[in-house]
Design a binder for these strands. Structure first.
Length: 477
RNA sequence: CGGGGAGUAGCGCAGAUGGUAGCGCACCUGCUUUGGGAGCAGGAGGCCGCGGGUUCAAGUCCCGCCUCCCCGACCA
């Protein structure tokens, strides 16, 4: 029997491949209203693992979870000029409730700076109340005209952190701590997705922020995806909402703030950073099912052996699923697990059992190796560890191979057709003298500056001049 | 909002000049299979987007409406 293609190959049509995987792996499907999404159990299980890993890191960074309302009085939005200007095109506004027209329309939160800050103003009185570090897990609504499952939708799930600090320096350090210790660490260590961190340009900055920091990754088609952002808000919101405190000497000052978020878009990144023509490839640390044990058939002791193996692996601490659906065809079962990206598959059948073996299949490299039954536990543990590393390594190699150093806008445009371009800030700034002109030209070509970094790839200072930095240029999702 | 399409079974589609609504996948039942999306046989499933009109007769022709999708300016 030949392996049949259930998915559109990536090389044929990458966006179609993505849609196929999301559908066939039963991650999500579209809701009845445009831009809405139903996250199916398997997709949600992955999201729950992301939440758990991120939440632990957020708490390690000192923030605590809370919850604020989904409805925000419209007037709150108007208090910060740049914020309202940036968000008004994508707001959903409730004008009626209980059958009556509302006195004041309510905005369905697109982000929660305004509502949270109005409470920060009450909670913060003294320097002793600082820093105030809050996170919330919530859904947000931003009207979208061109939705794509997980990547861009009218409603999506995320976590948004909001903090208030006594000094600019402290807020700066915290924003970067979140970027590296929470986001980057999670993305690299758990998702196995290498990221390029850096500062956003003025043009790409969050509406109302002083500086926006971001982690960008490369998908398998060479396009960039913003995985998470961390903003230094300065004192703009604090002034608008009156978040002030008296310091040790009794002087009143406005707080310095940060906000940061990562969303269900990470699901899309996970799919597109690792997936191949056979479907998803999940790194073991994020996989809801790490090992699936398949009984080839129910008879000849295979069913019992599979059950026994599954139990021992579960006892060893792995997330295991036992598949004894011998009424289904073999190919269907295998392909189903493959599409779902389960890292390790153990095939238990009479043929191998008679030799005291089972077949261990790794999804990352699609290898098949017979292993002795008494070695199964050790071999599975080893395979999971290696698979995690291999996926990260493969993604790193792809990122490096498709990242080109360029010297001009033309070269950057060219290189961005297949990957990332590293363009000296000087080349970007010098273009037609006026600042931002070079970036505008890139944008016209469908290419954007993803982040600014130092030449060695490290994070630049908040005010470090463009001319001394390097722009990571790419097409993006 | 400008340009281009499409609404028929859960999904994907076909239905020349009007005449009993079909195909593939999926689903149900049975038998045979079972180490890479199995085979055979049988079966269930429809307000043909909505409203009007023409006609003996409309998925098909005419008018109106609605919705969705694709391509161009912002965003996690």
């Amino acid at each position: 029997m030949p392996r049949s293609n259930v998915l559109t190959p990536q090389a044929v049509d990458f966006p179609q491949w993505y849609q196929d995987v999301v559908a066939k792996a039963e991650l999500a499907e579209g809701g009845p209203a445009r831009g809405t999404m139903v996250i199916r159990p398997y997709g949600y299980a992955i999201w729950e693992r992301m939440q758990g890993e991120l939440d632990a890191r957020i708490k390690a960074a000192g923030a605590r979870n809370a919850y604020f309302p989904v409805f925000i009085p419209e007037s709150y939005f108007r208090r910060e000029a740049e914020h309202v200007e940036g968000f008004s095109p994508e707001l959903a506004v409730v004008t009626h409730g209980g059958g009556k027209k509302l006195e004041e329309p309510l905005v369905v939160r697109p982000t929660s700076e305004t509502i949270i800050d109005s409470f920060f103003a009450k909670w913060v009185q003294s320097y002793r109340d600082l820093p105030l570090l809050i996170n919330q897990w919530a859904n947000v609504v931003r009207w979208e005209m061109r939705p794509r499952l997980f990547l861009r939708g009218t409603e999506f799930l995320w976590q948004e952190g909001h903090t208030a600090h006594a000094t600019e320096e402290e807020a700066h350090r915290y924003a970067l701590r979140i970027l590296t210790d929470v986001y980057q660490d999670f993305m690299v260590e758990v998702l196995g997705v290498p990221v390029m961190t850096g500062r956003k340009t003025e043009r790409e900055r969050f509406a109302g922020a002083k500086t926006t920091w971001a982690a960008e990754s490369m998908m398998r088609d060479g396009k960039a995806l913003q995985m998470g952002t961390s903003h230094e808000l300065g004192q703009g919101f604090a002034e608008a909402f009156g978040i002030s405190f008296s310091d040790e000497s009794g002087r009143q000052s406005f707080c310095w703030q940060t906000s940061w978020g990562a969303s269900t878009r990470l699901m899309g990144a996970l799919v597109m950073a690792h997936g191949d023509d056979l479907g998803l490839r999940l790194p073991p640390r994020i996989a809801p099912v790490q090992v699936v044990v398949l009984a080839v058939r129910a008879e000849d002791g295979a069913g019992e052996a599979a059950t026994r193996i599954a139990e021992s692996l579960a006892k060893a601490g792995h997330r295991v699923e036992l598949d004894t659906r011998t009424d289904l065809s073999w190919g269907r079962r295998v392909v189903g697990w493959e599409i779902r990206g389960v890292p390790v598959r153990l095939e238990v059948g009479p043929r191998d059992l008679s030799e005291g073996k089972a077949v261990l299949c790794r999804r990352d490299c699609n290898s098949k190796t017979p292993v002795s039954l008494d070695q199964v536990e050790a071999e599975v543990a080893k395979a999971l560890e290696e698979s995690q590393e291999a996926l990260l390594g493969e993604a790193r190699e792809a990122l490096e191979a498709r990242t080109a150093k360029v010297a001009s806008l033309e070269e950057a445009e060219e290189a961005a057709q297949s990957g990332f371009a590293l363009l000296p800030g000087a080349a970007l700034a010098s273009e037609r003298a006026a600042a931002g002109q070079g970036e505008a030209r890139l944008n016209e070509a469908g290419v954007t500056v993803r982040v600014l970094q130092r030449p060695d790839g490290s994070l630049p200072g908040a005010d470090e001049e463009l001319t001394s930095l390097v722009a990571v240029v790419a097409r993006s999702y």
